[in-house]
Design a binder for these strands. Sequence first.
DNA 1: GTGAAAGCGCTAACAC
DNA 2: GTGTTAGCGCTTTCAC
Lengths: 355, 355
Amino acid sequence: MKKYSISDIAQALNISKTTVSFILNNRAEEKRISPQLVERVQQFVKEVGYKPNPIAKSLRTGKTNIIGLMVENIADPFFAAVARHIENKAYQNGYKIIYCSTDNNTLKTKELLEMFQERNVDGCIIAPPIGVEAEIKALLDSGMPVIFFDRHLEGIVTDQVEINNYESCLEATNLLIQEGFKDIGFITFSSTQTQMQGRLAGYQAAVHHAHLKEYVLEIKFDQNERLIIEPIKAFLTKHTKLDAVFFSAIQAGTNGLKAFHELNLKVPGDLAVIAFDDCDVFALYAPSITAIYQPIDQIAEATIDLLLKRLKKKTPGAPAAKSAAKSSSKPVLGNFQQVIIPTGITIRASSRKKR
Amino acid sequence: MKKYSISDIAQALNISKTTVSFILNNRAEEKRISPQLVERVQQFVKEVGYKPNPIAKSLRTGKTNIIGLMVENIADPFFAAVARHIENKAYQNGYKIIYCSTDNNTLKTKELLEMFQERNVDGCIIAPPIGVEAEIKALLDSGMPVIFFDRHLEGIVTDQVEINNYESCLEATNLLIQEGFKDIGFITFSSTQTQMQGRLAGYQAAVHHAHLKEYVLEIKFDQNERLIIEPIKAFLTKHTKLDAVFFSAIQAGTNGLKAFHELNLKVPGDLAVIAFDDCDVFALYAPSITAIYQPIDQIAEATIDLLLKRLKKKTPGAPAAKSAAKSSSKPVLGNFQQVIIPTGITIRASSRKKR
DNA sequence: GTGAAAGCGCTAACAC
DNA sequence: GTGTTAGCGCTTTCAC
């Protein structure tokens, strides 16, 4: 099976490349090419299994049909699940995904952004680390659609999808307060990222509002779980007054449970628990752990939708939709959207006061 | 900051594109271009921040520096973790990753393989579903390096990385037998994939060798966990004689534990447990669950290494290594490798016989 | 040692 | 309605 190019087709059919190109790009009608010719070309193309070379196309048009996806760490269940949904919908819309993990590393992220630029991705979806504001701004200025999710960057206006970090942590903390817990710790990772800041602020607001004391542990995130477990143990050992703990992220939660084991602390007898982000561990743990869950599918859906919307706008003559296409009213140029997805909470045994 | 092309550079420096290209591709020496000129060009290139356009390069050379990565489901923690490692090493070597999930869907996989072909990826890493043998073979015949991992396809010879499924399940089953368990169930997903077949065969061999009865439950895999939990409950309810259960995969294990809860079965009192694939759930569950673990980093490392080795071979004149390059002896043409990575087992409370 | 020019496969302005 | 042709930015053969 020989590989056909557009010239081969033109030659075989004794017409010109242009005509073939027009037909292949659904511009036959617009160019008023005879239906018979269209039919003949399409027939032939199908027959020989011709596929246009996307690289040549990209070189010419500047479009690649590739989306850059940048998460903190693709091995993190949350990001992996989001990536999965995004991947699905992207492929359905004819886009491929190039992905990468930032590790929240500024330098690495800058390099990756540069790579996206060079590779000419059509748009990108990013859970940005702090410190790449200038580069993102440059990207946006160059006309590349950039969508933020999970967090945003102060001072940058672009489409973004987030959850209600502040409110959900406020409410979850209130739940503990209403149950009658008085000394509620908040165990989190030291981070200036907006989502983590929001969670902490929510906890603080609730605690202050109830005139309770604030106990916050900020741990430097590390892949080595001992470096998470040990600070938690130290914190719990120091603050023996604590009767409840709120974990701000999944790795805090699971490693916190490990710390409990090692200290032989019972839940919720010694310590009540609420965790941010749900997972099998929390559902199966005995007692089961109350957890805030992020609607991952909605987050992913909203994110990729925002990007696809931007990408659609860039191809004015997109002949996909038959006729309604033209009537897509208001241009909404540069009119960025911020989507907030509400979280849910699964109340289980760990947050109930023994009475 | 204007975007420079190679002609811009040539023009600015009053030399020809050719010369610039040679210098940029480290062929200055070979072409005996004067060191001063080389220096001048490199200086200028750095100054204006010129980056060659990879798309144009691809169109011309047929290489893309992109690796296709195809897993069953990127949201699965195992595949996500493998992807993470592969991504890392690929980027270090100048390759980008386009990834996709097959869902073990033959049709989808065929389309994705076609996409890899069209997109001209330089090579691909695949955890293949059954039924795409012909397409993979065609890909290999076309000269594309294809590396299998996690499983292989009968009748296809290519580089592959797997774990010792058979032996590890044989040994794990023997562990239960030695503890004195007599009626050991094996709960797995119905699959003709080699890795699942290997696990089942290992269990069967151990059980038969000990003249014990075989109890196998094969569940159709589904994202909806109720469709996994319910068959397990039915199986356990039917076979009340069982004193131990071996779960062949992580989703079998976690959903199995959920089934236990719902049936109010105690581990290991009512049922001892061993699971294939380890995770936090098993470590934190009370009692903790004995689990076979796959050395994910080794698997990923071996896989990407095999691919990189193939890719290196394809660029004979690669001027990366200074001089030792030429001495890479034996050609090993078409000499495919099969790497088997041994698993480990973490023995915890769930597999111990109460005495 | 360096340059002119062809061409990778495609799109699109322009001509007829 | 259809064809001619000029690039997109790069590599590489061949000529000098």
